[in-house]
Simulated scan of single mutants.
Amino acid sequence: MTANDPRGVPVPEAPSGGEKRRRAPRLTTTSGVMTYVLIALAVLLPVPYMLQLPGPVFNTLGDHEGKPMIDVSGAKTYPTDGRIDMLTVAVSGGPGRDTYASQALGALFAGKETVIPTEAYYPIDTTREDVAETNSVEMSSSQDVAVAAAMEQLDEPYEVHLLVDGVVPDSPAEGQLRKGDRIISVNGEKLDSEPDAAKILSRTVQSSQNVDLVVERGDEDVDVALDPATIEGRHAIGITMKQDFEFPVDVAFNVEGIGGPSAGTMFALAIIDELTPGAMTGGKHVAGTGEIDPAGKVGPIGGARQKVAASTAQGAELFMSPAENCAEVIQAADQSKITVARIDTLDDAQNAVEQYAAGDTSDLKKCPAGGADNNEKGQ
């Protein structure tokens, strides 16, 4: 955006009189020029904000660049129909990229984008490479968790193991634990094959002065005794963790270049659709969002306003919103074009799709008109 040409601004005529009065218009003109120059410079200065706007939309039941978005093998699969869209948010600005005052102001006036302080999302020393790596890790993790949630929903057994993914220097774990150690138990509580193992371990560390671990390292079990310490303000032993899953099916995701965890719920629905007879959507077009955990609990995401706008523009007839995003979704949704369902769990999401496919939404859990959080149906 450029400033108005100062030459197009009317300048008062010089009043008659002495020499000082004749010079006044020049000072006024110079002052006006300087004012507009300063405004122009201010508008073009980078500001510490990011803009969220609707990003590309992908059909999890379809193809992407000539390959299936989700390819399930190792078990009997069934034909699908319709669309279950996963939604993305495009971001302007953030670490390594400038947002200009003109862009931020334009977004505020347009009302279609969200302007947020960069520091609300990223520490000040975050680089663009850090963001890309985090998004990639979150996407990879969300895929595994989506498969786990789908297996839970289908009552299919699977195994999950908690591994040490890294050790913090100068922490209690340094020299005691190694990357790749499989954590079997903590203070006598079994963790192996427990979907909530990471939460259990974290909770135990937070509440204990001593932590006794049993880890599998190679072909042997090793006992490790640690005394938690304060690390970056938290009671911790100084490790990062990751889950390693063993599923009864193989699932390949064609999502290169897409990051973040918010597609988990739609991934899980697509997997269930492929592994069960009949088209879950009944040939209809639905969309939604939501992070998910292995137990099927749906969590809130960022950019909900942009996602419901993108799904409406693509012609989706049902939008599934995490409960905690209801307020902003209802505010942004054109409800004359799209029905908004509230989902707390994967079971809610599957029921919403199946009810909409059957043409009966009388029992559909909906985000209330005011966006408040409640448990009533049909509100």
Rank of each mutant, 00 (worst) to 15 (best):
G8R: 11
P10L: 07
A14M: 13
T28N: 10
Y36M: 14
L38S: 08
L41R: 09
P48Q: 06
L51C: 09
Q52M: 13
F58Y: 14
P68K: 02
M69Q: 06
Y78L: 07
D81V: 00
D85F: 05
G94E: 06
K112C: 01
Y122G: 10
I124W: 07
I124V: 15
E133K: 14
S136F: 11
E138W: 03
Q143I: 06
Q143S: 08
V147I: 13
A148Y: 03
A149C: 08
M151Q: 08
L154H: 10
Y158R: 01
L162F: 04
D170Q: 13
G175M: 07
D192V: 10
P195R: 04
R203T: 14
N210L: 09
E216Y: 03
D219S: 15
E220I: 11
T230Q: 14
H235V: 13
I237W: 04
T240G: 12
T240K: 10
F247G: 04
F253A: 04
V255N: 14
F267G: 02
A268P: 00
A268N: 01
I271R: 00
L275R: 12
L275I: 08
T276C: 08
G283N: 06
Q306N: 10
Q314M: 12
Q331L: 13
S336K: 13
T339C: 08
R342F: 00
R342Q: 14
N351D: 14
E376C: 08
